[in-house]
């Protein structure tokens, strides 16, 4: 708890820098307006004016906050202008993809740990695939799936699944190999079957690795869903909001979508963290 004060200080500093930045970046437009109207303008007029521009270069924090409040609390959640509506579209794809990706990742990891041929064949490819900018192919996956008749939720979820698959596979291989020879030998002396070794030793000792990978995976699944919404046009979701905002120069829409996405990411990572605490606390692996 002793880090509350430092974090609060840093947050305040960021907000302060943001306000100063907003004043300086937006001042040029106000000056141009004043020059066009032929009136002199001083800092006393510029500063308040920069806080409430319609299309600022950098919106002030309270403008973003007001925009988020307006598009979440004051709109019905079924309205197409509601951020909650768009957020749910993105979030449902994220969660569906996350579940699929984690399931596949765990299955592959189990296969790799139990089959030496699979380990030597697939593992180098799984690791080197981490160095490839996979997100770049997201638009292509959307188009290809659209061509074979899959669109919308499932297509975006496929991207999220694909992205969250790799960290889980890599982390779980590490985790399932975490028990050392001594522990494995003990299981042998108990005459445990492979099935029992897996459930009673490998699986429990892989849990800390699993949760660490899950945090990475859910964050990247959200990014995948957002990127997946870019090429589908404007059907909805955070990505579509950002693209629309950038087409029509609506800065506030971009910023509110960005913050909406950031809040979702923080909440989901926090939820995984809570699950981690609950599970690892009971298995006695909490560090």
């Amino acid at each position: 708890m002793r880090s509350v004060l430092p974090i609060a200080t840093i947050c305040l500093a960021i907000v302060a820098v943001w306000y100063v930045g907003a004043v300086f970046l937006n001042a040029k437009w106000e000056r141009d307006q004043a020059a066009r109207a032929g009136v002199g303008i001083g800092w006393a007029e510029i500063v308040p004016a920069t806080m409430s521009q319609e299309r600022p270069v950098l919106p002030a924090p309270h403008q973003v906050a007001v925009e988020i409040w307006k598009t979440t609390a004051e709109k019905r959640i079924t309205s197409k202008r509601s951020l909650v509506y768009h957020g749910w579209i993105t979030l449902s794809a994220t969660l569906l993809g996350f579940v699929m990706g984690v399931g596949l990742g765990i299955l592959l990891a189990v296969g790799i740990v139990h089959n030496r041929a699979m380990d030597l064949s697939a593992m180098p490819w799984v690791i080197s695939s981490q160095t490839i900018p996979i997100l770049a192919i997201a638009p292509m996956i959307i188009v290809v799936l659209y061509n074979i008749g899959i669109s919308g939720l499932v297509a975006k979820a496929a991207i999220s699944a694909y992205l969250s698959f790799f960290p889980v596979a890599v982390g779980m291989v590490k985790g399932l190999r975490a028990p050392d020879d001594m522990q494995l030998d003990l299981m042998r002396t108990y005459n445990a079957s492979a099935w029992q070794v897996f459930w009673k030793l490998r699986w429990p000792s892989s849990l800390p690795y699993l949760f660490a990978s899950l945090k990475v995976a859910i964050a990247i699944a959200l990014v995948g869903a957002i990127i997946g919404e870019l090429p589908t046009g404007s059907q909805g979701g955070f990505g579509a909001r950002m693209l629309n905002g950038s087409y029509y120069g609506q800065v506030l829409i971009i910023w509110s979508a960005l913050f909406g996405a950031a809040i979702c990411a923080a909440l989901m990572v926090g939820a995984v963290g809570l699950a981690q605490r609950a599970v690892l606390g009971r298995t006695g692996q909490m560090r």
């Binding site: 002793r2 880090s3 430092p6 840093i10 964050a219 955070f238 971009i254 960005l258 996405a261």
Partner: peptide, 18 residues
């Protein structure tokens, strides 16, 4: 450091490409 580390960890999870 105590202020920036948690912020940095949080930022690593945010969809910054946005």
């Amino acid at each position: 450091q105590r202020g920036l580390l948690p912020m940095g960890n949080l930022a690593a999870a945010l969809p910054i490409v946005g």
